[in-house]
Design a protein around this nucleic acid. Sequence first.
DNA 1: GCGTCCATGTAAATGGTTACATGATTAT
DNA 2: ATAATCATGTAACCATTTACATGGACGC
Lengths: 192, 192
Amino acid sequence: MDAKTLCLGSLMVGDATGYEIRKMFEDGAFSCFHQIGYGSIYPALSRLQADGLATVTEHDQDGRPGKKVYAITEAGRRAFAEALQGPPGADSFRSDTLFILAFGDLLPLERRSALLDAYSAIHATLLRELEEEPIDEEQCTPGHLFVRNYGLTIYKAIVKYIADNRHLLEQPSQATDDQASTPTPRTHAKGR
Amino acid sequence: MDAKTLCLGSLMVGDATGYEIRKMFEDGAFSCFHQIGYGSIYPALSRLQADGLATVTEHDQDGRPGKKVYAITEAGRRAFAEALQGPPGADSFRSDTLFILAFGDLLPLERRSALLDAYSAIHATLLRELEEEPIDEEQCTPGHLFVRNYGLTIYKAIVKYIADNRHLLEQPSQATDDQASTPTPRTHAKGR
DNA sequence: GCGTCCATGTAAATGGTTACATGATTAT
DNA sequence: ATAATCATGTAACCATTTACATGGACGC
């Protein structure tokens, strides 16, 4: 899903500046399933405007760079509806933390604990932010509700999983507890 | 986390060809939290070899291109342990399906149902594959167990969430049930 | 016969992230 | 004072994805 469509989606919810759009993907409603930075947003908004899919209103503010509030046009709504038509691309999930944790036995115990703490904390924060985010009765569609609750549910499941299973990784047993620079070589399984 | 480190991780588990490494990220143990294609793997393996972090053994097979089995070296193990040291990058999750579903009220009912069915089915499949994947007693570390169970737990949570909440999106009530080319314009919230 | 699995690799294109450049206001 | 928030935009860099090129074996 390209940045243009993502921005159109934001504008479907309401008029916004580039700055506000990024916030929607950082904190807001969309944060759990897509993220984009300024580097994608501003060029996308320019193209949207050039293509007649959005309009701009400049609100000059003393000092600060003039706020550019974008609004979706009728053509923009059509283009968005059309973009929603095609078969969706596959989900993609990447987690360095989980990858590192998979090799936890190469790490000292404190580091394992620190990683687990941080990973739990970040999801607890995300959960809290989603919970606290006000739901605008007026324009909260069933779809928005569905994905919001989805986020809540998954974040909760993650926090719970870590609490319930961190003991698996926090047994001091493992190979080396000191940060040995020579990790114990294990015998490999024969190539299939 | 770059492709080189990812490949080293694969080789830590056991010797493998580029083809087999990709499978580990497509079906196997790592599939739930990182994915890479041939385009990243083969160049990475070449560089690994050039840097002395892996060795190759060519098993010529009649007809087919010679199988190149890579094995991690002692230097490779050290490099991998070091790569695990730094602070992990943030997780990244992207889902076109959830984004589309968030705007479900622009879609006809059948499409909403089809999307939900497909999304549930794919996670059910992923779940089954992870469950069926044999766990090699010998070399199954606590870390591997932790991330495997993590995958199982999350996939289960997703399938369950969809079953429990799809009704939110499957009410025929919504705006247009026929695929209207003019989606009902809603009044926007004032920009903040 | 046709499609899929095994198996490797390269090249181009796409597109996103990061860093840079700028600067006032507001809260601590 | 200092940090964070508001606010826009560009350019270089990096990396992944996609398409291409090749081809035998095996099951349907």
